[in-house]
């Protein structure tokens, strides 16, 4: 919307389009759009790819065993196979940090790791952080200090912070800035993310 331009015209545009396109379209389309049942069998791809590997890993303490195509990334495995969607695809090129998860105690970018290469590992995602219905101190701190805006990077921010604080329980602010520098917050809520991580470091048992 242009500055100062009341958006009344938009409404009239949509109403005009409605009047113009309306009735005819309804008739024309309804017969062509008999719905398929949701359960209908999907056709399969032409050539099932034999290049697959059985992947086993514990994710948030739960063992999983899935056969995947070799080129499946850890992010695709977590989101697609395990339906854990807290890790996000922001760039798919280890350039943003939204896909951060913890593998064997270290934060990594799951978009650029192969699931087959992580086989046998212990993986933590954001879904595994709260224990016994209690939020992790980092989650608590991100709430109290509003360490986010849109939230798309937040899973990654919290996991990067967890991997760091687990090894460095009493960091300085500059330590935290460096540790968190691989996770872009495009809303740039950095001041509050920094406060959140510092607060969590004070709240977490050393």
């Amino acid at each position: 919307m242009r500055d100062d331009e009341p958006n009344v015209p938009e409404a009239s545009v949509s109403r005009r389009a409605f009047l113009k396109g309306g009735a005819a379209a309804t008739g024309a389309l309804s017969s062509a759009l008999l719905p398929e049942t949701a359960e209908a069998q999907l056709p399969v791809a032409t050539t099932p790819d034999a290049r697959r590997t059985m992947v086993e890993m514990r994710v948030n303490g739960i063992p999983y065993r899935h056969e995947v195509p070799n080129h499946t990334t850890l992010l695709e495995f977590i989101r697609g196979d395990l339906k854990l969607t807290g890790a996000k695809a922001g760039c798919d090129r280890l350039q943003c940090g939204a896909c951060t998860v913890i593998v064997n105690g270290r934060n990594i970018y799951s978009c650029t790791a192969l699931a087959v290469e992580v086989s046998g590992a212990e993986v933590t995602t954001i879904e595994g952080l709260a224990k016994d219905n209690a939020l992790h101190p980092l989650q608590q701190a991100f709430i109290e200090h509003s360490g986010y805006q849109c939230g798309f990077c937040t899973s990654g921010q919290i996991l990067a912070a967890k991997a760091f604080l687990d090894r460095h329980p009493t960091p300085s602010e500059d330590d935290v800035r460096l540790a968190m520098s691989g996770n872009i917050c495009r809303c740039s809520a950095y001041k509050r993310i920094l406060e959140s991580v510092m607060a969590a470091s004070r709240a977490m048992p050393v």
Partner: peptide
């Protein structure tokens, strides 16, 4: 909505999956 954001429960469009 803070809890949704810090637990990964907030569903963004790419997180939606429908049958078929």
């Amino acid at each position: 909505d803070a809890i949704d954001r810090v637990t990964g429960q907030a569903k963004y469009t790419a997180d939606i999956e429908l049958p078929g």
